[in-house]
């Protein structure tokens, strides 16, 4: 088990290195940093000083090594909007994003899994039909539209919930619901498919032949076996969820990393964008590591492989 974790940990720096390479290429491709950092009326002397400070006179490979060194030290440069170092500004917003992601993912997982189980148990009957239809309808609904619709209904018309911003728990409901709706239908459908597949396995008949009740069979034999595809899917969905959070945070003015990133891209605040990309990547990598660990705990066959 420890061996397995160690092997998985080796991949983290590798994945991160790839992200940093991609970020470096994109940064250099978006234009000369001098034009970004200095105002249009800068003097040639100012440009020379900055060129030297940013090591832009060095060969590109040397620049890359210097960039890696700075990043490893946690030095992403100073934000153009806030003046201070970029990383702390990003980490400041991390709490808000994690809160939103956790709430959305929790709702999507719990409702998705129970919905999917209900569909599988009452296959081709009313509950299955209802839940599957709602899931497919929700899946085809763009989240920016759903978000605006929810604001219109619950915040503007009914005045039950705040329209935007972060504050008490009430503020969390609409953005979390919007973001959850973005991934929930997928969880319903994959749980349903996976449960149905396992229900047809011979060992389920064995369990029934032992005298187990339908409910016990469902939760001790069928569900644990159906969990693997759901967990693997969760790993993939974390990336989608983070992407979805950018839209959701923007709609609801949620002060998280997503909204910060979008704003920084418009402001061409390169250090913030870079720091944000690294934080988000690390989050996705760690989430996938956790998923892999959960998979290996659930399924003993994975520990060997």
């Amino acid at each position: 088990m420890l061996n397995y974790i160690a092997r998985r940990l080796i991949y983290i720096p590798l994945s991160l290195l790839l992200v940093l390479c991609a970020a470096f290429v994109v940064l250099r491709a978006t234009g000369n940093p001098i034009d970004i950092f200095l105002d249009p009326n800068h003097t040639p002397e100012q440009a020379d000083v900055l060129t030297a400070r940013l090591h832009l006179d060095q060969p590109i490979l040397v620049q890359f090594v210097i960039y890696l060194r700075d990043v490893l030290r946690g030095d992403f440069g100073d934000s153009l909007q806030f003046g201070g170092p970029a990383m702390p500004a990003v980490l400041d917003r991390l709490g808000a994003t994690l809160e939103l992601l956790a709430a959305a993912l929790g709702v999507a997982l719990v409702l998705g899994i129970f919905g999917g189980i209900a569909c599988a148990v009452w296959r081709d009957r009313t509950p299955d039909f209802l839940i599957s239809t709602i899931a497919i309808a929700a899946q085809s609904m763009p989240s920016f539209w759903l978000g605006i619709l929810l604001i219109q209904i619950f915040a503007v018309d009914l005045r039950w919930l705040p329209t935007s911003g972060r504050g008490d728990g009430w503020h969390l409901i609409l953005p979390a619901a919007t973001l959850a709706a973005f991934v929930l239908p997928n969880f319903v459908l994959i749980t349903r498919t996976s449960m149905l597949e396992v229900m047809g396995e011979p060992f389920v008949v064995t369990g029934k032949a032992k005298g187990l009740s339908a409910a016990k069979l469902l939760f001790t034999h069928v569900f644990p076996n159906a969990l693997n595809p759901i967990l693997s899917f969760l790993g993939i969905q974390v990336g989608r969820l983070v992407a979805g959070s950018i839209v959701t945070e923007t709609i609801f003015s949620w002060p998280g990393i997503g909204r910060l990133l979008i704003g920084s891209i418009f402001q061409r605040d390169v250090p913030i964008v870079l720091a944000g990309v690294v934080v988000v990547s690390l989050f996705i990598i760690l989430a996938n590591l956790i998923v892999d660990l959960l998979l290996s705990i659930n399924d003993p066959r994975i520990r060997l492989g």
Binding site: A209, G211, T220
Partner: peptide, 20 residues
């Protein structure tokens, strides 16, 4: 079932729960 009357299945590869 399983108490007074029990069953042995044909396929030992698939009649056991693989993750228990």
């Amino acid at each position: 079932r399983g108490r007074h009357l029990s069953m042995i299945f044909q396929e030992p590869m698939t009649s056991l729960n693989p993750i228990a």
